[in-house]
Design a protein around this nucleic acid. Structure first.
Lengths: 147, 147
DNA sequence: AAACTACTTTACGTTTACGTAAACTTTATC
DNA sequence: GATAAAGTTTACGTAAACGTAAAGTAGTTT
């Protein structure tokens, strides 16, 4: 039911703004498994999804190895081994903890950026005041002189 | 008003669970600027804060170069140049956008982990059913045989 | 048929963020 | 005063994630 069933390497590269080199590298590391027509790679919509996940993983600070581990584990759960299923659940728990940590980090960062921005704006208005004191009535003259 | 004014390299290493090598590397890259007593490094509480920020930055996917840029810019804003202040404000804006992206990524990831976990649990209960069918009344026998 | 265009493999190079070993100094402890 | 403990510099090594030629193939447009 996808719009398209298969994709060339450069189509994916364009869509996700990565180099073909990267995509080939991801295949080399077994994160993507395109089929071949002759020697040319043909990517399925599953590959497309995985590429999207790879890139999101990167933005979230996941290594390719970590992402690959998740892919592999997920594939194994589909073949329904109990041990793998349990392992998957514990790993999901770990990842959740990671995400919680990241959310805390982000919240902290946002707060600090708020105070940083506030101080910047204060400093700016301070500068404005001083400027006006220096040139109380020559504002127009200075403005035109700046060209 | 901090508990302690100065810190040794190993104190900081322990507190933040990093190697002394890393800390020295951060100094080499000019993210930390400890003073010296003889040839021994002495870290201020400002250094401590910066180390904390470095590590949080890493968890958020920031490179050391990015973090250093922020540190430098922040220092420059303290000396009150208007141009630097404005640059700082735009960079803060960029970072905010990054954080928004990350929050979206995290939210997406959490949703997908929810469905993944659900499928795992379903698969597990399926397996439990099949087990019971295979051994409807011999449960005790199988349990003890597993040793 | 010549020239593009898109794709391929092979392989060496690069950056980041440290690890690790060697050899040395300074300070504290027995 | 030896010896351990914590610090130092110097320098080569490494893993991850690609970048960047170089050289070849396969289809197709002029």
């Amino acid at each position: 039911m996808d719009i398209k069933q298969t994709y060339s390497i450069s189509e994916l590269a364009k869509e996700f703004d990565v180099t073909t080199r990267s995509i080939r590298f991801y295949e080399d590391q077994e994160l993507l498994k395109p089929t071949r027509r002759g020697q040319t790679r043909i990517f399925s919509s599953k590959d497309r999804v995985r590429l999207k996940l790879i890139l999101r993983g990167k933005r979230m600070g996941f290594s390719l190895a970590e992402t690959k581990e998740l892919f592999d584990l997920w594939d194994e759960t589909l073949s329904g081994n109990e041990k793998q299923l349990l392992k998957m659940l514990t790993i999901l728990d770990n990842k959740r903890a990671q995400l919680e940590q990241q959310k805390n980090d982000i919240a902290q960062a946002e707060m600090e950026m708020d105070t940083a921005e506030a101080r910047c704006r204060e400093a700016l208005t301070e500068l404005q005041k001083k400027k006006k004191q220096q040139t109380p009535a020559n504002e127009e003259a200075r403005q035109t002189a700046e060209n």
